[in-house]
């Protein structure tokens, strides 16, 4: 059962990220690649309803501006992409969250999404995420991204 959920979450994540940011990814072994001292941004979002929990994503800070630029159709160097990067990461998490919940609970599930909370990811948090089986690793065009799904 858990393998099926992981497979479904992985496929949904990669599909939504590709549609939203035009960035291609693949599942990755998070332990082999992650530099826990690296500069990562963490976005988290709660959801309530038929299914309750939190979806989190940790992204290298350099990659956040690239994600924002791709969503907005700008160059990463452009000021707007940089200033809007946290908001864009939150929006990406919002879209991923909606699709992931429907993937694991079905389209008939009734749920609501909270507001995304964005901030730096501490090395201790990242180290814990690497050890935690609720967190999955993805290689998103050479950037290791972590996705954590915790349901109650």
């Amino acid at each position: 059962m858990r393998d099926q959920i992981v497979e479904s979450v992985s496929a949904t994540f990669l599909q939504v990220v590709e549609q939203l940011t035009y960035m291609f990814g693949e599942p990755a072994d998070k332990g082999d690649i992650l530099d826990v001292d690296g500069d990562y941004i963490l976005a988290q979002m709660g959801f309530t309803g038929d299914v309750n929990g939190t979806l989190s994503i940790a992204v290298p800070s350099d990659c956040v501006a690239e994600i924002a630029a791709n969503i907005l159709g700008l160059e990463p160097e452009e000021m707007e992409a940089s200033s809007m990067a946290p908001d864009s990461l939150g929006e990406m998490l919002n879209v991923i969250c909606g699709h992931v919940i429907m993937a694991i609970a079905g389209k008939g599930a009734d749920f609501g999404l909270g507001s995304p909370v964005i901030g730096p990811a501490t090395p201790a948090f990242l180290a814990q995420a690497v050890e935690d089986s609720d967190w999955l690793g993805f290689l998103l065009e050479e950037n290791l991204v972590l996705l954590g799904l915790v349901t109650e």
């Binding site: 969250c97 909606g98 429907m102 008939g108 009734d110 749920f111």
Partner: peptide, 9 residues
């Protein structure tokens, strides 16, 4: 326009 578009909602 949303990503939280479950069928009941």
């Amino acid at each position: 326009v949303s990503s939280a578009g479950s069928e009941p909602r």
